[in-house]
């Protein structure tokens, strides 16, 4: 009797575990591994909610199984470290600086697809290895209950002023929007000035977050008066049911001032991609008008293809003064910008 009492739960539990593992195996087996038309490995550094619908649609239309690894800027590092062991086919990034950096490290493959010509040369790599799809400007989002448009700082320089201490939020310095922005500022201001500006920023920032969604929500909720984000976060916050009394300042718009920094999000072809053919097909597909629209529509960015209307609420690219910097020039400064950020202590958060 003792024996049977011992055994029953044992077998039951073993059976349950085996069942669990088998169900797991079955379930993941059901999802066609590889599918009929092979697979596509996407490294995605963009907010997943903006990208998932497109990827699902691609999978459905082509029968190519899409495997996504969503992350943030750490994916750049990962691609770099997987140089001899390439797993990714394409890299969807929010940041031309990161993509150009990868290209200069010989980690991207040239692409001569005619589809690329829809995009202005300024917004794609010279060898076509990456191509921009949508534009985003760096702006200050502010809470209208806490601060008025007149009170808001109008230039980025002003953020270094101690009077803004604990008044604003920024992202962690490792965030690639931030890195490329710093690279651009280095071009405009030089190392020393950018460095001391970053240290002051670190000093003054009330909160340092991992991403921008945190910032728009927090500013909307009145946690802090304002924050440094990409312009579409402002439009996204406007759409919320609550906490939507926000405004946006495009910095440095004065006559002699440098203008807001404009970056592009896009897609890059990885060198040695295991599924190169699918990767090429994916990039061509992304450049079709419907997908271009979708890509910027979800996130309220401005499409780079001039034939495609900007989503309602998003500012057209010629409606504000943009920093006069060639994005492809920023790639080589990317590592230096990172170093500068590390020196200022902004890399890890508060």
């Amino acid at each position: 009797m003792n024996k049977s009492r011992l055994r029953k739960p044992f077998y039951l539990t073993v059976a349950a575990l085996v069942l669990a593992v088998l169900t797991g195996a079955l379930l993941s087996g059901c999802a066609p591994d590889g599918g009929n038309n092979g697979e596509l490995v996407v490294y995605n550094a963009r907010s997943e909610t903006f990208v998932k619908p497109l990827l699902d649609q691609f999978e459905e239309e082509t029968g190519i199984r899409v495997r996504v690894l969503s992350g943030k800027e750490e994916l750049v590092n990962q691609i770099e470290e997987e140089r001899n062991n390439v797993r990714a086919d394409v890299f969807i990034s929010n940041d031309a600086g990161a993509m150009e950096y990868l290209r200069r490290q010989d980690l991207l493959a040239p692409n001569d697809s005619p589809a690329l010509e829809k995009i202005d040369e300024r917004f794609r790599a010279s060898d076509g290895s990456w191509v921009g799809l949508s534009a985003r400007a760096r702006v200050l989002i502010y809470n209208k209950d806490l601060i008025s448009e007149a009170e808001m700082p109008k230039t980025l320089q002003e953020l270094a002023d101690p009077k803004w201490e604990e008044k604003f939020m920024i992202t962690r310095g490792g965030n690639s929007s931030m890195v490329t922005h710093v690279a651009a500022l280095r071009e405009a201001w030089g190392d020393e000035e950018t460095g001391s500006w970053l240290s002051a920023l670190h000093q003054n920032a009330g909160a340092i977050t991992g991403g921008h969604t945190d910032i728009r929500r927090a500013v909307g909720a009145g946690e802090y008066p304002f924050g440094l984000v990409n312009n579409y976060y402002y439009h996204l916050q406007l759409e919320e049911d609550r906490d939507n009394k926000v405004g946006a300042i495009y910095p440095d718009q004065g006559e002699s001032e440098m203008g807001a920094f404009v970056n592009v999000a896009g897609v890059a072809l990885i060198d040695g991609a295991p599924n190169e053919e699918n990767a090429g097909a994916f990039i061509d597909w992304m450049l079709e008008d419907e997908q271009q629209f979708e890509f910027s529509y979800h996130s309220k960015e401005t499409p780079l293809n001039p034939e495609i209307r900007a989503p309602e609420g998003a500012k057209e690219i010629d409606q504000y003064r943009a920093m006069d910097i060639n994005l492809t020039d920023l790639g080589p400064h990317w590592p230096d910008a990172k170093e500068l950020i590390q020196e200022s202590g902004l890399d890890l958060g508060i």
């Binding site: 590092n77 490792g174 890399d347 958060g349």
Partner: peptide
Amino acid sequence: RYTTFTTAIYFQMGSFDR
């Protein structure tokens, strides 16, 4: 939004150097 050694290692590893 707090930083300890463990989180610092994680972010250091991701965005900067290993």
